[in-house]
Design a protein around this nucleic acid. Structure first.
Lengths: 270, 270
DNA sequence: AGAAGCTGTACCATATTTAAGACAGATTCC
DNA sequence: GGAATCTGTCTTAAATATGGTACAGCTTCT
């Protein structure tokens, strides 16, 4: 299989590289919160770059609130440096947000019908020429863009609600309101980079990391009902799941903890 | 809460931005496989950049195998453009790889004892001054770097095996061999960017997206046994999980499918 | 007070990126 | 054959990133 090429090619600028390196070292524990990191001159030497470059990286770190810098003192790692505050759950993001009493709204960016891209068509098990409703939304939590959602729904199903509905209600809720039986789903998780489009919508920079969750939802008959791709800002959101070590097929394995139906029970210790 | 700043600041080069934009448009479905994308001149105009910039982005796309370009013809999106081949499973990566008969080895990059960084210490519920064993490994599958693993293990437990063991056996297997009872774990998923260090180890470029899985493993008494951070290349690996729609606490929710103990059973349709 | 170390700022030289335009060769379509 | 369109290549110029250096001002320590 080809595609071994990966490395080299359109690297970001040195300042950005440097910024990533330092940021990693910080959230990494190499430079614990409260500690002072080496002087600009020393860093410039260590990384084999000029001081200007170091300064740019540092400025960015400061802008992100990861460090505090003072003349005469130095650059010190901020408390909680790099370790982001996180909203977390696994299966139902929205539910958890609501539980926490956060205000969340949705902004509809695109809406229309057409032929879905191949992979989506296959995932939904649609015919060659079947149409689908495509919608792009941005979910806003507490005033801040939180997730970028691209959804495809088979035409017939999509017709059961308005574009106005989309701005108010969650898609899944709409479907179930329309009498669609939502039975099971296949979910996939990856990482991507923000593109100019998504970056703007989420008010972040281009080339920043995003958590990509793709979910295909089926009804009891195995018919595709919804294909959703959600992009989350890692700073604002992390997937979390509890695992149990179980015996399976002779070997010990991990198995996701079946939620104990009584909401979010996290305690495990007696 | 501060840290609203996010946007603007140390953007990558225009070529890189352009590359991301095009790459997204491709895997997005805007330019389906087989289709020809606009000429360099037209793109340059649309994106308000020069043709040189477009060409760089294109060259990178070609290098990644996402497009084919021919003089007189144009640039056409490769079949399977952007849609990466994927190894996939959720809970046990390694097990699945082995199942598929892939050859996997590990390379030990770092090994030593010391105080773990704060977050790790807290996650493992260690005392203020407790030491931990830190190891950094790269797992290689079929000759290609596959994951970058940083593990912390409480000193006492770490002492039960060699550094040589680490290169051969999976950490979890080592622990269980040493009589440690592995009971449950807390797992968290995020996205990050490759740093100079991780990029080199994984033979990718700096600033590429990585899937970060952090897992803290506990014994039956709730004592921290292992803290593992795994970085995966999205091209090579995706997390996947099956969900069922269930009633829980009055509302319909998603619940992870409990693996049916008989290995990897994927069929769901009757 | 003085020394040492740090950041903030300014200046100039160099390398890289980007812009703009011109031309050659390949391919497709009429 | 000829027009239109595309990529490949080259040249020239501007904008930006980087390298190297010097100096001012602030803090901490001796």
């Amino acid at each position: 299989m080809a595609q071994n090429v990966s490395a080299e090619g359109l690297e970001p600028t040195k300042s950005r590289t440097m910024f990533l390196a330092l940021g990693d070292a910080i959230s990494n524990g190499t430079f614990p919160p409260g500690s002072r990191l080496p002087g600009e001159l020393k860093l410039a030497e260590q990384f084999n770059v000029s001081r200007v470059t170091v300064r740019r990286a540092m400025a960015e770190l400061e802008r992100m609130g990861m460090v505090d810098r003072k003349p005469g003192v130095g650059t010190v790692v901020a408390d909680r440096g790099g370790v982001q505050p996180v909203v977390a759950d696994f299966t139902n993001v929205l539910g958890h947000l609501l539980e926490m009493g956060r205000k969340t709204t949705a902004r509809l960016l695109e809406f229309g019908y057409g032929q879905p891209p191949e992979p989506v068509r296959v995932a939904l098990r649609l015919g060659e020429d079947e149409q689908a409703q495509r919608s792009v939304r941005v979910r806003v939590v507490d005033g801040e863009p939180f997730s970028y959602l691209t959804a495809y729904v088979p035409e017939a199903i999509g017709a059961t609600y308005d574009r106005d509905d989309l701005a108010k209600t969650s898609l899944l809720a709409l479907l179930e309101r329309s009498g669609i039986e939502v039975d099971h789903a296949e979910q996939t998780v990856t990482a991507t980079l923000s593109t100019p489009t998504t970056a703007k919508a989420l008010t972040i920079g281009v080339g920043e990391p995003l958590l990509a969750v793709t979910r295909t939802v089926f009804d009891p008959q195995g018919r595709g009902v919804e294909h959703l791709q959600a992009l989350y800002r890692p700073n604002h959101y992390r997937l979390q799941i509890a695992l149990n070590r179980v015996d399976a097929g002779g070997t010990r394995q991990w198995a996701p903890v079946a939620e104990t139906s009584m909401g979010s029970s996290k305690k495990r210790d007696p």
